[in-house]
Nucleic acid binder design. Structure first.
Lengths: 190, 190
DNA sequence: TAAAAATGTATCGAGTCGATACTATTATCG
DNA sequence: CGATAATAGTATCGACTCGATACATTTTTA
């Protein structure tokens, strides 16, 4: 039943598709491709535990093979460095180089974000909340990890006497003030 | 000045990018690629004057070459038919075949749209309005045509005695009731 | 300890996409 | 009127995406 699109849905789909296209199009700037920007952006925001090919794969919802290729091209451009994990010889750690960090700051999507800033502040808030709601609803419907910020995780322990100010009770690792602001693969709402 | 991203902007960009990625990902369903779905969707909604490669090029913001290829593959799949314009031998008209129309009804983005429907009706409205605002702001900032619906155009003349119920004063063409609901390249707000 | 699971890489084929060059046809304007 | 410019499309190149499949190495688990 209800096989046909009712008109509200058609309009909504149009909006989604056009918006996505505009965003994607913007991502072709400055010598990188949209998927490469996605990876760069993630690596700039993710904490140490989450900077691996497999975490990136989960975050971007792609396949391992695709991510492997994207990372290879970023490495060839001198934006990303790989390091072997000494504990697990299968695993690879990812870090942005200085050039990579610099480029991440000049995000290709900034022109798009700038468009918002000329709108009334109230609209800005509305739009941001709406996007957030939509994103979370979709992630939830697919059973995906939210990839939230460390600080807001149920495994986050504040002000521990472990050398570093905070602590992760899942990975049993100390956390710096800065690290606790980053995106984590393991994040679960508190 | 303000070369660095302030944190609100970074969060906003993250949202945009992730959302776009999810939408794009959804578009890989059922044997078509996202760009092919974009073309199919447009052709299903555009009026006769706007079903040409060049109009599609403007709508999707791509280059002529890319669109030409996308259309070739849709033609090869039996979803689109081309017809020579008798008045202008350079121009090509595009029509969905029966199969094309059927496929357009099963839009790849429906699962995404369905996610909305479980949200409170109020949220649905908020999200739709927010998306619309964002889209229009971006189109405006790039000086793009809005590609709105015929009926809401300043060239739309209602209830004319021209055989068909309505009329376009720009193209000097009669319009059917159904045609006046479609997307038009030439649309300008009334 | 053998089988299963996890982490990555390699490769294929279809497609995207910007760029450039090219062919026809139609408009413009001197 | 006729040269030149603008329009509408196609053809081709190179880098990249992306799903799929196959494969090689480690861990894990049973």
């Amino acid at each position: 039943m209800n096989k046909a699109l009712h008109s509200n849905q058609a309009h909504f789909i149009s909006l989604l598709a056009r918006l996505s296209r505009l965003i994607n199009h913007e991502g072709h700037a400055v010598g990188l491709k949209p998927a490469q920007w996605d990876a760069l952006r993630y690596l700039a925001q993710a904490n140490k535990f989450s900077r691996s090919p497999s975490a990136l794969t989960a975050y971007l919802g792609a396949t391992k093979g695709t991510i492997s290729q994207t990372l290879m091209s970023l490495e060839k451009k001198g934006l990303v460095e790989k390091t072997q994990d000494p504990n697990d010889k299968r695993s690879v750690g990812l870090d942005l180089t200085t050039a990579g960090k610099a480029l991440a700051k000049e995000d290709a999507l900034r022109p798009f974000a700038n468009v918002i800033e000329v709108l009334p502040v109230e609209d800005q808030k509305d739009i941001e909340e709406a996007l957030e709601k939509l994103l979370r609803a979709k992630l939830r419907s697919e059973g995906n990890r939210p990839f939230g910020i460390c600080k807001s995780c149920r495994h986050f322990r504040k002000n521990t006497p472990s050398g570093e100010p905070h602590y992760c009770s899942l990975l049993n690792e100390p956390l710096s003030e800065l690290g606790s602001e980053k995106i984590c693969l393991e994040q679960e709402a508190a």
